[in-house]
Design a protein around this nucleic acid. Structure first.
Lengths: 130, 130
DNA sequence: CCCTTGCATCGACGGCTGTCAATATCGAAG
DNA sequence: CTTCGATATTGACAGCCGTCGATGCAAGGG
């Protein structure tokens, strides 16, 4: 309600105060990113050939037990940031691009918001009823 | 090391696996965003006239005690996402635009990375020594 | 059918986090 | 200097989170 002129930086965050509901949705996703292990997992999967990686590719990169890695992957899944698919014995993870784009758009300058959609592009599972 | 061709989505995250150090820095910032109250505080400050707001403008918007709000503001400050300045009796908070832009660039499509700098633009207080 | 391999779930435990009431600090006004 | 209003700090406490070892479960291979 204040910076419609869009000066140096006007992310959607700066257009108007966040709704309580929307803040809750975003916070759940950001919280999932708030761990170095999970960030590296996300990055390893995103940068892997074909945009997907199986758990056995990821686990050896960390000094953590296999259950711990599995737990972190579950957190990323439940935050809507990654999805997985079982193929034979292996489970392959890949990122959900729209989720990352949405988070990026919320933080970034407003020009980025437009191509993505009207400020709230992606349905991540919990939307505010209008 | 894989998607140099840059297809549908190639954030810096997808260019190559995150360094352990860099993942730690980013995680600290994302963790600060991983709380609905802090997200709303950030948004309220960013959307306030002049890009800054005093604590007395923020506190009444929440059903939380004043120390709790002060705590959340401190978390945002220590994450490098906000800065504050005392003017008389009041303390005014404003966002650190570069920090948000950096986070946005990490998540978003690669074109956004360029104008900001070579992938690691902002000094937020804790850099990796080279 | 059993065994092996890859991954998920469970239960437990220490440490961190969000919250509050109480108190301290800082600046302005008398 | 005293007082008062605005913020910050402290200490305490419940609940969540990251981690592990042990176990369960699914899918192939003998």
């Amino acid at each position: 309600m204040s910076n419609q002129e869009c000066g140096p930086c006007c992310s959607p965050l700066a257009q108007e105060p966040l709704t309580q509901d929307w803040a809750g949705d975003l916070a759940r996703m950001f919280k999932a990113l708030g761990d170095p292990v999970r960030l590296r997992l996300l990055s390893m999967v995103a940068s892997h050939d074909g945009g997907e990686a199986c758990v056995c590719d990821l686990t050896p990169a960390f000094d953590l037990s296999q259950p711990t890695i599995s737990h972190h992957l579950k957190v990323l899944r439940e935050a809507g940031l990654m999805e997985c698919e079982r193929r034979g014995t292996w489970v392959y993870y890949r990122v959900v691009p729209d989720a990352l784009v949405q988070l990026s758009a919320v933080l970034g300058p407003a020009e980025l918001t437009a191509p993505v959609g009207p400020v709230r592009p992606v349905a991540t599972g919990a939307e505010v009823p209008a």
